[in-house]
Structures are given as structure tokens and as C-alpha cells.
Write a protein that binds this DNA or RNA. Structure first.
Length: 430
DNA sequence: TCTGGGGTCCTAGGACCC
DNA sequence: TCTGGGGTCCTAGGACCC
């Protein structure tokens, strides 16, 4: 007899907005938006903004009127801050159980199987209260016998005022009722394409999906869809992944602040992205066996000609050396560059990642590997000691007129001594 | 004027081999 | 007249996640 499983999903509410609010309490109860890179899209919304009908991912320029009318507060994304706040939240959660899976920047699964708690809802409340007190971030807690059901419990915990942020669906007499209240597109694993297809055959909510025909699901949604259905029935298909699987690819790409036409500007951008990719490879002790470079024009533009192209280079020896990756990247760029286009985005993708210590050497390798490694270690050490980019390759440019916009970024309150928050205290007689 | 970035997995179909 | 069958590997594309 298998022991019954119990999973909790802890999800930070409006995470990026909540991070901004921790350091500026005046934002409480006000409509707040955090924008994507380049200040392009809406990626986080406060409840006030959601109530006004602003959807996730809409372009900011399309809701300018709404923003002004409701005096919404806008922020550029500040990933340094969000990353550090995430670490604090996860560290707090780790205090509750060693069986923790950090699922994303703002979500974690906890395995509560066999904890023997009589009242899991109370335990959820303790978690919620502790995270709020220690980090300032509000979270919701969903508890259930599978991860997919825990996701649903969490979704409802956020929406229902009665739940007050915590919902336990294990052995719940209201389970069917709860599933019927969740639209099929809100089920974990069902995206827009499958939701459309399901709706066509009359499946609108999670309850109907749970009771769907297995063969139909397998045929149209593959085994992945079938697992989702099993999980809705309470049969776990996904266990906690406490040790993350080794990464397979690593991408570095960004839209430009303004269109780029010359090969010289494009080359600077590609060299910079190759630099960033190399830094991330080294930080994770990885090396890339292949390198792909792509460029593209604005795919939304109706008046300009569209162009997309990419080129992949198989590297003779897997590497994380910045200079080497830059030189391959620039050679690839020359192959795919076409003059006369307004480029909007470029990127570098590293593939066939291997652990740095398991690199297959090549007899005819022209590079002095030990020397390259020492050089990169020195470069990283200098940049860590002083500031990022203190030492850098000239190919990546200095002015970078094409660089991504971040016009409304808040301070890096928790990771930079020069940007610590200031508090003013006035003592008044009581 | 203005539309993000970084990942994973599965499947079908072609290439290739014997 | 009549032109195999079955296995493996790789890749592109499509779906999903945050």
C-alpha cells in the first residue's frame, strides 16, 4: 500500500508588484504594474489592476489611457531585486521542510506527506504568516494529493476571500465543486491551444476534464495531457524534483530599444549577448558544445519587410571562454546578416551543454585551454570585486545606443550598498 | 513611436542502416 | 508483371510552463 501523498504549493501573490511594495508601502492599495524588458508588456499586476481588466502580457502602449485615468504606477522590471527577494522567501520555506522544490522565481512545492498534521489548513496559515513577517511578501497556499490539484487549490485560495489565502483540498467534500469552478485554461498543463480544442468538445472546466475520455486525451494532448487528467483524479504522476535536472540549453536575447540596421551595431549586441551567455555558463560550471545566433525584424510591423534567420555552429571543443564564443558568434552573424532591414531583436543560444569537468578534448585544438581558464577566472574575479563589466571585451561596445529600455527601474535595495532604502523617523510626543 | 525572456517535453517524419 | 521491412537517430515544430 502506497502512502498517500500530500503536496503544498506556495505561490507569491503578484510577486514583482509585491517586491516593489515591500520597499515603498505607499503603493499599497494602489494600482501597480511591472513591465517586461524594454518596458514593453505587462508582466505583473496588482489586484487593483487585475480588477480593471488588464490582462497579463498586454503591450503597455495599448492601455495608456487606462493607465492615466486610474493613475497606475509603472515599474520597469528589476530582476536583481526580485531574484534576491525570491531567495529570502525560499529560505524561509526551507525552514518548514527539507522536501522543497523551487519551481519558479515565485513558487515552491512542499512535500507534506506523512507529516501527520491533523489540520493542514492551520499549517498553511503558519507558513503564510511566517513568510509575510520575515520577507514582507504575501503568499497563497494550496494543499492537495497531487501537484496539479495543489495548483488548483492555490488558484482558488487566491481568488476566494473566504479561503483567506489557504485552501486544503485533501479529502475535501467540496472537491468536485472546486474543480467545476476552475476554467479548463487555468489547469496546469492546459495552454491556449488545448483549451480551445477542449472547449470545442464541450469541456469547459477542470471537473469535466477530469472525467474526460482517456483515449481522446492521449490522442489530442499526448501523454502529457493524460498525466494532467490522472493528476486531476488524484493519482500522482509528478513527484517533487528537489535536485534540478542538468540544464540543456541557455539563451541570451533581448529586443533593442530602437531598430538597428548596421552590421556594426548588430555585432556589438551579439558580442554582448555572447559575453553574458559565457558568464552564465561559467557561473554554472558548464560549457557549450554548440552556439546558435539569430536576428529578427519586428514581427508585428505591417510596413517593414520581415526577416528572420539563424545559424548554428558546432564548436570543436565545448567552451565557456568569452573571446572564443564572441568570435564564433560574430562569424555566424556575418552569415545571416542582410542589409536594409530594421532589426528589432538578436540572440545567442548555447546548446549541448556539458559539465565543465567532462569536456571532450580535441587533438587539434588550437586553444590553450588551461590559459583560457585562468584568464576567465581572473576576469570574473575582477568583475566580482569591482563591478560588472569593469573588464570587458571591446567587441561588445561602449555606448550601446540600441540597448534595452528600463526607464522606471526601482533601486536594488537588497544587493547594492549604494541603493539601500532610507528611512525617515520623526519622533512625536504621544 | 510603442508588443519580454528563458526554459522543458513530446511527436511526427525524414535520413540512414542492414 | 513484379521494386521490403524494421529499427534507430536526429530535428523541427508545436505544445506547455513561469
Amino acid at each position: 500500500m502506497l502512502l498517500k501523498k500530500t503536496y503544498a504549493l506556495i505561490d507569491c501573490n503578484n510577486f514583482y508588484v509585491s517586491c516593489e511594495r515591500v520597499f515603498d508601502p505607499r503603493l499599497e492599495n494602489r494600482p501597480v504594474i511591472v513591465m517586461s524588458n524594454n518596458d514593453g508588456c505587462v508582466v505583473a499586476r496588482s489586484d487593483e489592476v487585475k480588477a480593471l481588466g488588464v490582462a497579463m502580457g498586454v503591450p503597455v502602449f495599448k492601455i495608456r489611457d487606462l493607465i492615466e485615468r486610474h493613475r497606475m504606477v509603472l515599474y520597469s522590471s528589476n530582476y536583481t531585486l526580485y531574484g534576491d527577494m525570491s531567495r529570502r522567501v525560499m529560505k524561509t520555506l526551507a525552514g518548514f521542510t527539507p522536501d522543497l522544490e523551487i519551481y519558479s522565481i515565485d513558487e515552491a512545492f512542499l512535500d507534506l506527506s506523512g507529516f501527520g498534521y491533523k489540520n493542514l489548513t492551520d499549517y498553511g496559515r503558519v507558513i503564510r504568516r511566517t513568510v509575510k513577517r520575515w520577507t514582507g511578501i504575501p503568499v497563497s497556499v494550496g494543499i492537495a494529493p497531487t501537484k496539479t490539484l495543489a495548483k488548483i487549490a492555490n488558484h482558488l485560495a487566491k481568488k476566494s476571500p473566504k479561503a483567506d489565502g489557504v485552501l486544503d483540498l485533501t479529502d475535501s467534500p467540496y472537491l468536485d465543486h472546486a474543480l467545476a469552478a476552475v476554467g479548463v485554461k487555468n489547469v496546469w498543463g492546459v495552454g491556449p491551444a488545448h483549451a480551445r480544442r477542449l472547449r470545442k468538445i464541450g469541456i469547459e472546466n477542470a471537473l469535466q476534464l477530469r472525467d474526460a475520455d482517456d483515449r481522446w486525451v492521449q490522442k489530442h494532448m499526448s501523454v502529457v495531457g493524460l498525466r494532467t487528467v490522472y493528476e486531476l483524479r488524484g493519482r500522482p504522476c509528478y513527484d517533487l524534483e528537489t535536485a534540478p535536472a542538468p540544464q540543456k540549453g541557455l539563451a541570451c536575447s533581448k529586443s533593442f530599444g530602437r531598430p538597428v540596421e548596421s552590421l556594426a551595431d548588430l555585432a556589438e549586441a551579439v558580442a554582448l549577448y555572447a559575453t553574458r551567455a559565457a558568464e552564465r555558463l561559467r557561473r554554472q560550471k558548464l560549457a557549450a558544445g554548440a552556439l546558435c545566433v539569430f536576428v529578427m525584424t519586428n514581427l508585428f510591423s505591417k510596413k517593414d519587410r520581415r526577416y528572420f534567420n539563424s545559424h548554428t555552429t558546432e564548436l570543436p571543443v565545448a567552451t565557456s571562454d568569452t573571446a572564443e564564443l564572441i568570435s564564433y558568434a560574430l562569424a555566424a552573424l556575418e552569415k545571416i546578416y542582410r542589409p536594409g532591414h530594421k532589426f528589432k531583436k538578436a540572440g545567442v543560444i548555447c546548446d549541448q551543454l556539458t559539465c565543465r569537468n567532462k569536456i571532450q578534448l580535441n587533438l587539434f585544438d588550437p586553444v590553450d585551454r588551461p590559459r583560457s581558464r585562468r584568464l576567465m577566472q581572473t576576469l570574473d574575479a575582477v568583475n566580482a570585486l569591482y563591478a560588472p563589466d569593469t573588464l570587458r571585451y571591446a567587441a561588445a561596445g561602449l555606448d550601446r545606443p540600441w540597448k534595452t529600455r528600463f526607464e522606471k527601474r526601482s533601486c536594488r535595495y537588497t544587493t547594492n550598498w549604494n541603493e539601500l532604502p532610507r528611512a525617515k523617523i520623526s519622533l512625536q510626543p504621544s
